[in-house]
Every structure is written in structure tokens, then in C-alpha cells.
């Protein structure tokens, strides 16, 4: 069964139409979502994860319509995300940031008021996640003091702690140097091989082309192409969107 299906999504911000009848579905893959600035990529992520209720259309996750759900509810279904402008919990340590994700099943229950979070099993899980994301040595650091590349990785670690089936990564390679981007790419591939489906918004074309099995291209709120990286690369509409029409 398709994990996520986006059906005829349109969204207006006042008089501006940010998304125009966008439809696609995920397969077992790393799906790239690319497009020039202002194409509507982050808006689409916000619609999928519940931060924006779309004006029209449906988001279907595991056969269930979810576009009316709030973000704290979509994450409970197994959909985690990161943000384009990183939002680590700045006053918490790296370890505590990851623990916030582990608390996901407790927050909607009254257990959250009495159950302690720094338990041995939870700290073990944190250790595991920090090892996967190569953040182990920063465990005790306040998130605010990490450089941007590590903060991006920390957001992934925090999202992983919610045990997602689908991970939405919003420009994870932005601001990274090439070595960091390669490491990140390896990490995303490793997560995919662990069974997590991934949708990644990316500006860095080379990064997206190397990483993703399939790519969806948005331009001015419209889905203009989808296919394998090579198909998309040679698509005339995509070339025009990026380079402009003669």
C-alpha cells in the first residue's frame, strides 16, 4: 500500500495561490521534492505534516485522510519532519532534544505528568540514535551552541526518536560544506535501508540527483514533472523553470 498520497492539493494565502492541484504518491523510496525558490515545496511539507490545512484536496496516509489533523497528531501516525530554518530546542542539550522525540507516545496521556524521562532504557535509545546520526560526542552540549550542520543532524535525530515510517526533510543540506553533505547523504541512505521512507526537499541539485530514486518538481505551486533523476533532468519544463525560457 502507498504510504502517502497527496490528492489535488491547492492552497491559497489570501490572493496568492501557493499550490495548484498537486497530486503524487510515495513508493518505497527516497523521493526528492525540488523546484526554484517560491515553488511551494515547504508549503506542501506544511500541508502534509499538518501545519497548514489545505484550501482544497486531500492528504492520505496509510489509507487515512489526515489533512484535517494538527502536526502533533500527524507525528503520532509515524510521520516526522525537520524544518528549513532549523528549530532545535536551543536551551536543551543534544540528549534532551532527542528525548523530546522519545516522549511522543506519552504527551497525549496523563502518564506524562508522572513518568520520568531520563530512564536507562530511554538513555540507551538516545545513545543508539546519536550513534546513527554521528552526534554521540555532542551529547551534553546545549543545542544552541552547535554549528548549523550539527543542528540539522540533531533535527533528524529528534525526528528519528519519534520512530517514523515517513521522514520529511526540508533542505537538510542547506548551509553544509561538501564533506558534510556527503555524510548527510550517507545517513539518509542508511535510514532508508532501515525501512524509513523519505521525502526530501532540496535545492542542491547534485545532492538530490545522487540521493533520490524519484523526483517531483514544483514550479510556482504546480507539479511540472516527476520521474527518475535522469528523466527529470532532461525534462524541458524543468530546464525552463530553472534556467528560464528563451
Amino acid at each position: 500500500m502507498t504510504l502517502l498520497e497527496v490528492k489535488h492539493i491547492s492552497h491559497w494565502f489570501g490572493g496568492l495561490q501557493a499550490l495548484k492541484d498537486v497530486s503524487f504518491q510515495t513508493q518505497d523510496e527516497i523521493l526528492g521534492l525540488i523546484g526554484p525558490n517560491g515553488a511551494g515545496k515547504t508549503t506542501l511539507f506544511n500541508v502534509i505534516s499538518g501545519f497548514i490545512t489545505p484550501t482544497k484536496g486531500e492528504v492520505i496516509y496509510e489509507g487515512q485522510r489526515i489533512h484535517h489533523l494538527r502536526p502533533y497528531q500527524t507525528v503520532r501516525l509515524g510521520m516526522a519532519r525537520t524544518f528549513q530554518i532549523v528549530k532545535p530546542f536551543a536551551t536543551l542539550t543534544v540528549e534532551e532534544n532527542v528525548l523530546t522525540g522519545l516522549g511522543m507516545p506519552y504527551y497525549p496521556t496523563s502518564k506524562a505528568l508522572v513518568q520520568r524521562y531520563k530512564t536507562a532504557p530511554n538513555l540507551e535509545k538516545v545513545e543508539e540514535i546519536l550513534t546513527t546520526t554521528h552526534l554521540k560526542e555532542y551529547r551534553e552540549f546545549p543545542a544552541a551552541k552547535l554549528p548549523i550542520g550539527l543542528q540539522r543532524r540533531l533535527e533528524i535525530a529528534r525526528a528519528l526518536a519519534t520512530q517514523p515510517k515517513l521522514l520529511l526533510l526540508d533542505e537538510p543540506a542547506a548551509g553544509l560544506v561538501s564533506q558534510e553533505a556527503t555524510e548527510l547523504s550517507d545517513l539518509i541512505l542508511a535510514l532508508f535501508h532501515q525501512g524509513i521512507q523519505i521525502i526530501v526537499i532540496e535545492h542542491n541539485m547534485r545532492f538530490a540527483m545522487n540521493l533520490c530514486q524519484r523526483i517531483v518538481v514544483l514550479n510556482q505551486g504546480e507539479l511540472i514533472a516527476h520521474g527518475t533523476p535522469s528523466e527529470v533532468q532532461n525534462n524541458e519544463k524543468v530546464i525552463n523553470a530553472y534556467l528560464g525560457q528563451e
Binding site: R76, T82, K87, G101, T162
Partner: peptide, 14 residues
């Protein structure tokens, strides 16, 4: 307190 959107992304209903 840090960020309500990020809190929502880990399942905290603010």
C-alpha cells in the same frame, strides 16, 4: 517554551 512548531513536530500539543 523553545518553539511551539518544533514541539508539535515531536507530538507535544501545546
Amino acid at each position: 517554551r523553545n518553539d511551539e512548531d518544533a514541539a508539535a513536530s515531536v507530538g507535544v500539543g501545546s
